[in-house]
């Protein structure tokens, strides 16, 4: 149907990932509510954990991919790399928004406040703002090669900033149930958590594939329009 093998692969791959993700989502939702045991201290509210943490993992993953795609783009100027960077920055902002919404929903009953400037939430917010700005830079620079180049610089610097943001906010203050809590996690809870991460990762692949496809189609349309005029 399509002459370009790359686009074909993208289409088929993202469709497979999307279908698998939908099936796994049903399993994950069932597991999160009916398989995972009730947490002793927190009670039912802890179930938010099974969407919050997988979303956070996928957000950071997407931001890192955006950074790597940007380095590759500045290196060889391949449009596909730029499309990868735009797509993953957007997917990262999406997952980040989920993290920033579910975090306060969990925190209010447990900590008694919607927002506590906890380390993990703060670092997510800071990085999320950087990649929102990424989008803004692209749009204000008028798209095209120039916008891609400027945005790539921002994405690289933003990705390099991740460890600094994590370390500084961690030291700033943390109330977060961190590694200690995870080590003592019930094995069933662990499995459900990993199922969630896998499910969301498939969604990330699906969204990335479709979003890159969209960039390619837009390029093609612009090229035809340019040819016609």
């Amino acid at each position: 149907m399509d002459s370009n093998p790359f686009l074909n692969l993208l289409k088929r791959g993202s469709n497979v990932a999307g279908s698998a993700a939908l099936v796994l989502l049903c399993v994950h939702l069932y597991a999160a509510f009916f398989v995972a045991p009730e947490e002793v201290v927190q009670g039912a509210i802890q179930r938010i954990f099974y969407v919050h943490v997988p979303a956070a993992v996928n957000a950071f993953l997407a931001f890192i991919v955006a950074g790597i795609g940007s380095v590759a783009y500045l290196w060889n100027r391949g449009r596909a790399w730029d499309a990868t960077a735009v797509a993953s920055a957007e997917v990262g902002v999406f997952w980040g928004a989920i993290v920033l919404i579910t975090g306060p929903l969990w925190a209010k009953p447990v900590w008694g406040a919607w927002w506590t400037w906890d380390a993990r939430l703060t670092s997510t917010l800071i990085l999320w703002l950087t990649f929102v700005a990424y989008r803004l830079v692209r749009e204000l620079a008028g798209g095209g090669e120039k916008g891609a180049r400027f945005a790539a610089i921002l994405a690289i610097v933003g990705t390099l900033n991740i460890p600094f943001v994590r370390i500084s906010t961690e030291k700033f203050r943390t109330l977060h149930p961190g590694n200690v809590a995870k080590a003592g996690l019930d094995p069933t809870m662990h499995k459900v958590l990993f199922l969630g991460m896998g499910t969301f990762f498939l969604f990330t692949l699906f969204l990335l594939g479709k979003r890159i496809l969209l960039e390619e189609l837009r390029d093609r349309r612009l090229a035809i329009e340019l040819e016609g005029s």
């Binding site: 509210i45 919404i101 579910t102 929903l105 209010k108």
Partner: peptide, 12 residues
């Protein structure tokens, strides 16, 4: 609490 959990999953 049920409302918060439902909202989280719903939003996602």
């Amino acid at each position: 609490i049920a409302c918060h959990v439902a909202l989280s999953y719903g939003v996602t």
